[in-house]
């Protein structure tokens, strides 16, 4: 366990020194909070741009829950893109530079290395998402209207689960592939497929973890969870574990690649 903590702390230190711990949470806050702010000041903005007061006043003001929903879908596009690009080299980068050899030559199991990396990604991503989401809620509460705290809490947990799954996919592709851009691309492609396919092939894709975002949205707008939500929740947990395990297998198979040859 102490060895695992050493690996975890090293990853966290690396993320701090590369400013990830600063800029990713700040960007998540700004991304989220922009929604209630622009919505609230939209009439003034339109007016300032010379659009008639009547037109501006006639613009429908969205419900507070819709603002939160919009934020989640923004995290699902721009947020995931930022996370995938930040972590695309988490395994392959070290392998390619040759620095991974220095770790593998010590008595470290590939599984503890993979879980330590995943845990460090998860710590950062969940912190960024959590702070960003709560800040958005705070601004929405002041500017638009209130959303009950228990709905915020539950939707936050549902979306966090989807994020954990998404990170395990990035980790897995980074272990399996040598190209960082390729890993980010395939991870995003897989995540997009899991998000979009349930609406096209509803019957076969009920288990898709991509439905968690939709479930979080349903929860926010209707106030209660859909009855079939347990399936994607269970699938997300299971697949996350499976992907982390696959990642450790890939990094084991490629451990002898010393980067230079």
């Amino acid at each position: 366990m102490s060895q695992w903590m050493v690996l975890y702390r090293k990853e966290m230190l690396g993320m701090t020194r590369s400013y990830k711990w600063l800029w990713i949470p700040v960007v998540f806050i700004l991304l989220g909070v922009m929604n209630p702010v622009t919505t609230a000041y939209m009439p003034q903005l339109l007016e300032a741009n010379g659009i008639a007061k009547e037109v501006a006043a006639a613009m429908p003001v969205p419900a507070a829950a819709d603002i939160m929903l919009k934020t989640l879908s923004q995290y699902n596009t721009l947020g995931l893109l930022i996370l995938a690009l930040s972590f695309m080299g988490i395994v392959s980068g070290e392998r390619q530079s040759g620095a991974a050899v220095m770790i593998h030559v010590k008595p470290v199991s590939h599984l503890s290395l993979a879980t330590a990396k995943w845990a460090s990604m998860a710590s950062l991503a969940l912190t960024a998402f959590g702070i960003g989401y709560l800040a958005t809620w705070y601004y929405t509460d002041i500017l638009i209207g209130s959303v009950p705290p228990h709905l915020i809490g539950q939707s936050l947990l549902l979306y966090a689960l989807w994020l954990l799954f998404a990170l395990s996919a990035v980790l897995m592709f980074s272990s399996a592939m040598d190209s960082q851009a390729g890993a980010a691309f395939l991870a995003l492609l897989a995540l997009a497929a899991l998000s979009l396919l349930p609406s096209l092939l509803g019957r076969f894709m009920k288990w898709s973890p991509g439905r968690l975002t939709g479930e979080a949205g349903t929860l926010l707008s209707t106030g209660s969870m859909a009855s079939g939500a347990w399936l994607p929740i269970a699938a997300a947990l299971l697949l996350t574990a499976a992907l982390i395990f696959c990642s450790s297998l890939f990094s084991k198979r490629k451990a002898g690649n010393t980067g230079t040859k």
Partner: peptide, 23 residues
Amino acid sequence: PQYPAYPNWMSGREFLSFTGRLA
């Protein structure tokens, strides 16, 4: 290894105690 490579953001001392703890 023939071409040793390191996490370049670490200091020599940090890296050594890191590998020591791994061992």
